[in-house]
């Protein structure tokens, strides 16, 4: 009974649809007067309805758990207001600001890059990986903080490969919008901030170099024109 009243409030709180992602719809909302966003997971027709419910709930559980875990670490993440498992909906505090990707194009301060590195170190320290750590998923607030959003693909993991992948994704995302020299510079700043707070930096560094090497072999393969016949 009480639940359905809450669900009604959820529906009424929705103001406008702001984005449709691969996994979820994002609604702008007002949650008891506070600016919020509501993230509703997508219906997938090709999945059995019960299976879909099962995995959506499982993923929501993980996302909520991770958001709560990270709230205690000092990383700027959206505050979780409510979770509606029957509606596949999460209500979170809206973070006002502009995406770091936009901010980088306008040459924002290196302080934001430093924060992105520091926060990732703190996230990894509690055994969480983000899974999609790109500059599109960071928001620079008016106070100059860099908030991390979208934990839809994040997981509990301490595998150096997963951690190094977060770093690599960040590198790729700045490479795609900045000139190479500046991107390299910024990645150095990012790594310095990351390693200053993260305890197991050495293993991750090794793996990161391996991942980047994988990419280089790809280039070499592309340049060769003949098929090797071994």
């Amino acid at each position: 009974m009480e639940h359905s009243i809450l669900e009604e409030i959820l529906e009424r709180s929705k103001q406008e649809l702001v984005a449709i992602g691969a996994e979820a719809q994002i609604w702008k909302a007002s949650w008891y007067g506070y600016p919020a966003i509501i993230k509703v997971r997508r219906r997938k027709k090709y999945l059995h309805p019960q299976l879909l419910d099962e995995i959506n709930v499982k993923r929501m559980r993980r996302e909520t758990k991770i958001l709560v875990t990270l709230a205690k670490t000092g990383v700027c993440v959206p505050t979780l207001y409510a979770a509606f498992f029957s509606k596949w909906a999460l209500v979170m505090k809206a973070i006002e600001g502009q995406p770091l990707s936009q901010c980088l194009k306008d040459r924002c301060s290196q302080e934001n890059i430093k924060l992105a590195g520091r926060y990732l170190g703190l996230i990894h320290n509690v055994g969480v990986i983000h899974g999609d750590y790109t500059v599109n998923n960071m928001i620079v607030t008016n106070r100059g903080d860099t908030c991390i959003i979208d934990f839809g693909l994040s997981e509990f993991s301490t595998d150096p490969e997963d951690r190094a992948m977060d770093l690599y994704l960040f590198l790729k995302s700045i490479n795609s919008i900045l000139p190479p020299e500046i991107a390299e510079d910024y990645f150095g700043i990012f790594l310095k901030a990351y390693s200053s707070v993260f305890n197991e930096w050495y293993a991750v560094k090794e793996r990161l170099e391996e991942i980047m090497l994988r990419g280089r072999y790809v280039e070499e393969r592309r340049l060769s024109t003949r098929v090797s016949d071994r």
Binding site: A22, K44, Y46, L47, H48, L51
Partner: peptide, 14 residues
């Protein structure tokens, strides 16, 4: 079977 096929379909979806 449902889970085995769905895993592939969702991976392809992504």
């Amino acid at each position: 079977r449902e889970i085995a096929f769905s895993q592939l379909a969702e991976a392809a979806d992504r």
